[in-house]
């Protein structure tokens, strides 16, 4: 969940900032793109704020780091973080932003340098939110505080949950959600999500609706055909087990839950060759919006829900196998 809230937070911030700035700030670019790998150190990426990860790299000079960020490296750093639409200056600003974090982390700040979430949070000092100029404080503080001031009422620093979004702030109605224009009459005619979700099974992420259960228990009955409410999907019950190296449980990819919503042609052959094991899938690719990440993390449940995909305990005695049972 920590990963989830960090990324949500950084994205929330960057989504806000983007429209007004012609050139995105380093923090924006970091939050929108680099953080997916560098916040937690996915695939061996040097972690944000972790001086140990960065110092040997910094030794080679900032120029070299710019080069790696712009052109990519063979060891997994994609050119421009995988987003060629960034200008060189934006990518360099993101590198500067990441380097600044290691420099401030070297100074004694009250937060553990390992934890970027904590770093970004406002210190429990209500004054910060009013941006009182402070000498020698970590620079990220005021911005983060500004963002947080909206999420957490100022003065509520000792509230039980400081960062977990309170129930009332989730799934806001359109006029308050930050993207609909409240000055537009139509906005007020739109349905608030919570009204629609009232009778639906809950989940902990995304829309906070368990869509699989909702359709399985017929709480909702989305049409398979645009015009014919009676047409039924061809549901295929075929699980594909993908063995995962390391300690994470294996991934079970279920055709059933997917073919309840999707057409074979949505995945085959553009995203996946229909052959077990024929596709190289990795978390890095998923986080970049490829493979499973084409849908998961955008429309289907987000990547923070590790257990939904990594659902098969490692069975060391037998090799993993596809439990193929084709029903109707």
């Amino acid at each position: 969940m920590k990963l989830h809230s960090l990324i949500t937070l950084s994205l929330a911030v960057s989504v806000l900032v983007t429209p007004a700035l012609a050139q995105k700030s380093g923090k924006d670019v970091y939050g929108k793109t680099c953080a997916v790998c560098h916040a937690t150190g996915i695939a061996g990426a040097p972690k944000y704020g972790n001086a140990g990860d960065w110092s040997p790299r910094i030794a080679g000079g900032t120029g070299r780091l710019y080069g790696s960020a712009l052109k990519g490296t063979p060891k997994g750093m994609p050119a421009k973080g995988g987003n060629p639409s960034y200008s060189d200056a934006e990518v360099k600003a993101a590198v500067d932003y990441m380097l600044a974090a290691v420099k401030t982390a070297a100074k004694p700040t009250a937060t553990p340098p390992q934890n970027p979430v904590a770093k970004e949070e406002p210190k429990p000092e209500p004054k910060v939110a009013t941006s009182t100029p402070k000498v020698d404080k970590a620079e990220p503080t005021p911005t983060a505080a500004a963002a947080m001031a909206e999420a957490v009422p100022v003065g509520d620093v000792n509230a039980f949950n400081r960062l977990l979004k309170p129930l009332g702030k989730r799934n806001p109605p359109p006029p308050e959600d930050g993207i609909h224009d409240p000055a537009n009459d139509g906005t007020h005619a739109l349905l608030p999500p919570l009204t629609a979700y009232a009778g639906l099974p809950k989940s902990l992420a995304g829309n906070r609706v368990n869509w699989v259960e909702a359709i399985g228990t017929k709480k909702i009955n989305p049409r398979w055909d645009r015009t014919d409410p009676k047409a039924e999907p061809v549901v295929m019950d075929l699980n594909i087990v993908r063995e995962v190296k390391g300690s994470m449980p294996d991934v079970v990819y279920p055709h059933k839950q997917h073919t309840e919503w999707l057409d074979c042609s949505n995945c085959h052959p553009a995203i996946f060759v229909p052959q077990k094991g024929a596709n190289a899938i990795s978390m890095a690719a998923i986080l970049l919006g490829e493979k499973c990440g084409v849908c998961h993390g955008k429309v289907a449940f987000p990547v923070s829900e590790c257990r939904l995909c990594h659902s098969k305990k490692k069975d060391l005695a037998r090799p993993a196998q596809a439990a193929a049972s084709v029903a109707k």
Binding site: L11, V13, V17, S25, E150, P172, P193, R208
Partner: peptide, 16 residues
Amino acid sequence: AIAVVFTAVPAAAEYA
């Protein structure tokens, strides 16, 4: 970034 964040509203838009 601060200036912009202060003038903006919470981006709590519904997922997707």
